[in-house]
């Protein structure tokens, strides 16, 4: 564990967070939080703590990376991956030339009923 490897992990973490959070949500909160954590541990001299935090950072990086890779692969092989139930049903109906009824269509018979 040297200075270079820590900076490398930091750089890759920033990149992953940018891709997965900042770009997706248009919100730099996660990035700022990451920067804050690295800054907090900037002057740590305790060797054990250093090793532990470095391992944590490395674990987080592999988790973020593999999660993104997993989603990318799933999205490639499965068109319905990542859709909500509603979207999935709509797409399935469209596939056979049908449309899911709108809320209006469902409510209409009840509204026209004499009270």
């Amino acid at each position: 564990m040297n200075r270079k490897s820590i900076l490398s992990i930091y750089r890759q973490l920033l990149r992953e967070v940018h891709k997965q959070y900042t770009l997706q949500n248009n919100n730099p909160y996660w990035k700022l939080e990451l920067i804050k954590i690295f800054r907090q541990n900037q002057n740590v001299n305790d060797k054990e703590l250093l090793v532990k935090s470095n391992q944590d950072a490395f674990d987080l990086l592999s988790f973020l990376k593999s999660n993104r890779r997993y989603s990318e692969l799933m999205a490639q092989s499965n068109k319905l991956y990542g859709l909500t139930e509603q979207q999935r049903i709509e797409k399935t109906a469209n596939r056979v030339g049908l449309k899911t009824p709108s809320d209006q269509d469902i409510l209409l018979p009840f509204e026209s009923m004499p009270s």
Binding site: L7, Y10, R11, L14, R15, H18, I35, F38, R39, Q42
Partner: peptide, 10 residues
Amino acid sequence: DSLDTVEVVM
């Protein structure tokens, strides 16, 4: 410092 430099390059 080195952390800032990484940020700037990012």
